[in-house]
Amino acid sequence: MAGTLPPHIDLREPRWDQSTFAGRARHFFMVTDPRNLLLSGATLEEARRLVQDYRAGKVSAGVTEDQLWRAKYIYDSAFHPDTGEKMVLVGRMSAQVPMNMTITGCMLTFYRTTPAVLFWQWVNQSFNAIVNYTNRSGDAPITTGQLGTAYVSATTGAVVTALGLKSLTKHLPPIIGRFVPFAAVAAANCINIPLMRQRELKLGIPILDEDGNRLGESRAAARQAIAQVVVSRIGMAAPAMAIPPVIMNALEKRAFLKRYPWMNAPLQVGLVGLCLVFATPLCCALFPQKSSMRVSRLEPEAQARVREKSPRAEIVYFNKGL
């Protein structure tokens, strides 16, 4: 192999050990880096070329190992791991912090009136629908009807939850009302993600052996993958929607915000952003991206396919999605 790179770098795997939380966290700090959104199309294509050339046994002279890993993370930030398609900009994980910072900050600021609750829950679920579709597991298409059902159901669930809890907290301390948006977001995640990925629940997601060879599809693997993503998404939202309300409730009692009420929204958005910078990669790292399951836990038909193709396999692997 030409160039200065060793031939044994496995670009199918992250740079850091994914069996440890610290390794996964370092990986996702790279994947969710908002600066990746500023990269040009030419930079993305160059990263893809470097990665694909290296996988094919070719590399340009002078490319270092650090440059190759940087290209891999640029490639991973913009292209779907299963389909290889370029992902829509706002659906990429690198868009999570700036998009959620703005939306969540506004949800926490404008939660007092019904029209504001309706509008920001709708905006949030529209964004979530794009993210859930963009980061789905596997390479199976999803129909327009399935997309529409998931979107409408999740938006309705979030709005009903928000309005219902808002009415229940009318006579409670104001601080309680500030947590209504989080309850609505948690409920919506439990609806939106399974519905957006319902095809995976019905038909299964690709399962692989340790060498990356496809052994079939599994519905049990899909259920585990989706459950892990739901937990991660709720965990991701928790600090950003639980810590700023407490701080803002204390600040609103002081003279500064009474004198400059227009600072409420910028402060709220900034606090949410600070939480999300850390919560997003750390909660993505709760579970390995390349998740695993024992063959004995698969549904019988999936077990039969695995036994037929790889009789000695005890564990299968799959992309859980994000």
Rank of each mutant, 00 (worst) to 15 (best):
F29H: 04
A313N: 10
L108K: 02
S19E: 14
K202L: 13
L147S: 01
P173K: 10
T102R: 04
H27V: 03
A42Q: 15
A47Q: 08
V269E: 02
S40G: 05
L251C: 03
A225V: 06
R112L: 13
R112H: 14
R305L: 10
K86E: 15
Q228A: 11
I9E: 08
L39F: 06
P81H: 02
S310N: 11
T149C: 08
R26F: 12
A240M: 06
S218V: 06
K258G: 04
F79D: 00
R24D: 00
V272H: 05
E217C: 12
E299W: 09
P14C: 07
P245E: 11
A47W: 04
N249V: 07
Y133R: 13
A188F: 03
G145D: 11
F119K: 06
R26A: 09
R214V: 13
A222G: 07
T156N: 01
M263V: 11
V316P: 03
A304W: 05
R294G: 12
N36L: 14
V59K: 02
P261I: 09
M293D: 03
G273F: 01
F119W: 10
A158I: 08
I9F: 11
V246S: 10
Q268P: 00
A95Y: 02
N132A: 14
Q228H: 11
E13Y: 05
P300K: 07
K290N: 14
P281K: 02
P14F: 06
M99R: 05
L38P: 04
P174S: 12
Q303Y: 01
G62R: 10
G84M: 15
Q268N: 13
I74C: 06
K309V: 05
C284I: 09
E308L: 15
T113Q: 14
T109N: 09
G105E: 08
A2G: 05
S167M: 13
A158W: 00
I315D: 00
V160I: 15
S19Q: 15
G84E: 15
C190E: 08
V316H: 01
H80T: 11
H171W: 07
A220S: 15
L89G: 00
L208S: 00
D53N: 12
I315L: 08
V51P: 07
G57W: 03
G105D: 06
L267V: 13
R297Q: 11
H171N: 14
F179N: 04
F119E: 00
D211E: 14
A150T: 02
G41S: 12
N189T: 10
L44N: 11
L322N: 01
Q67A: 13
V316K: 01
L50C: 09
T143V: 08
S296H: 13
L195Q: 07
K58A: 12
